[in-house]
Amino acid sequence: MIEERNPTNTWIVDDDSIYVYGLKKLISIKGINTNLSHFINGQEGINALKKANENQQLPDIILLDINMPVMDGWEFMNEFAKLKPQLGKNITVYIVTPSLDLNDIHRAKSIPEVAEYIFKPVKISQLTEIFSQTQYQTNERIRQYGT
């Protein structure tokens, strides 16, 4: 039986346009089944989350940068934690950053909503793993609840 594969929703909250370009390119090359949306800072991301919650267009995955203007990754996580109880979906947040700073790593680990801390540049193997996991979860959910 061939399983119907529903595309996952992936949000990139990152101000580094080259990285976003590369990520999009990589996803298309690898043929990963996901819809990508890009927000250039935390504030845009939070605004979009509120809107998407109403329209039931919430993402499955958020790839979050730390250093961004207007609202950085840490502030985004604060807002996200406040918003989380109202969100109709379990969203997995990955922090994706070039920072090797131990302070950043510890801080990320102390936030329960952060699934993982991933160093830029993202390895192809890491990326496929993230998406296959989410794909599996999405399919499971659809099988169980039909949505």
Binding site: D16, I18, G22, K25, I29, T97, S99, P121, V122
Partner: peptide, 26 residues
């Protein structure tokens, strides 16, 4: 200084690596 190296230099070198990989695959 260390911060610049860890955040910015690394961000650029990471992107460079990323693009070179893509270049090879394109």
């Amino acid at each position: 200084f260390a911060y610049i190296v860890s955040h910015n230099l690394r961000s650029h070198t990471g992107n460079l690596q990323f693009m070179v990989n893509l270049f090879e695959q394109a």
